[in-house]
Amino acid sequence: MDFLRPDSWADALAAKAEHPDGVPIAGGTDVMVELNFDRRRPSSLIDLTRVRDLSEWYEQDGLVRLGAGVTYARLITELGDQLPGLAMASRTVGSPQIRNRGTVGGNLGTASPAGDSHPALLAAGAEVEVESVRGSRRMPVTDFYLGVKRNALQPDELIRAIWIAPATGPQQFSKIGTRNAMVIAVCAFGLALHPGRKAVGTGIGSAAPTPRVAAEAGAFAGSALDEAGLWESRGELPPSLAREFGQRVRAAAAPIDDVRGSAAYRLHSLSVIARRCLVWAWNDYRKAA
């Protein structure tokens, strides 16, 4: 196996073009597990940790441009205000050691339905910037997930950055696991209130073949809040609205039974955390008045 260590983004793209079956590695928290379990024997690894540009973030055009190699630990400490949902999700990733290594770019590259950052990216309406020697393109994160551990990357493409609008309202993230830390999601939910456009962003994790938006549930909540004039009045959230939202999120999921939990429990718990997330976010919205 070759171990390629490009020093620049251009070299990285060239390496990927030359080795389309090469596996990019950043924090290695997924790739190394696969190698250790002998589930994968790539012909080459492309180490992206020397590409300085990937580990930087900055604001541009009103958006946060998050380099694909920014670690969860930095996200938590540096971006908690701008990207609260993603920072909350990052806090649930593995252990401190894993958060010091793992990156959102890696989460997208693996594209596991259980990746912790996906629900927050979906709820915030993030975009993924990918690039190859042929050029660069940007797509909504919803278009990035194609199937279980399958994403929209072409063989010569690398993930360069994630573009996310800074939060304009409260965000929440909640993840079910069968222990209180260091656990892979049984299911997860991300929620973002977008008061400017009176919208509720959603993201479901680990309860369908891909991370997915609960679009109908989000639309329901956004307009129900609007019809009651609550976006303006910041009045109390009717419990029936929260319950209905939970049920509609549940209806958007398509989970399986596996070693981590049953489909029935995933559906049930998803409806509960979706409801709770809306309540918490709405209470924050009211307090922020």
Binding site: M88, R91, T92, F173, S174, I176, G177, N180, V183, R276
Partner: peptide, 9 residues
């Protein structure tokens, strides 16, 4: 219960 996975307040 749930710890920092933020499942209940």
């Amino acid at each position: 219960p749930g710890g920092v996975s933020n499942t209940t307040h």
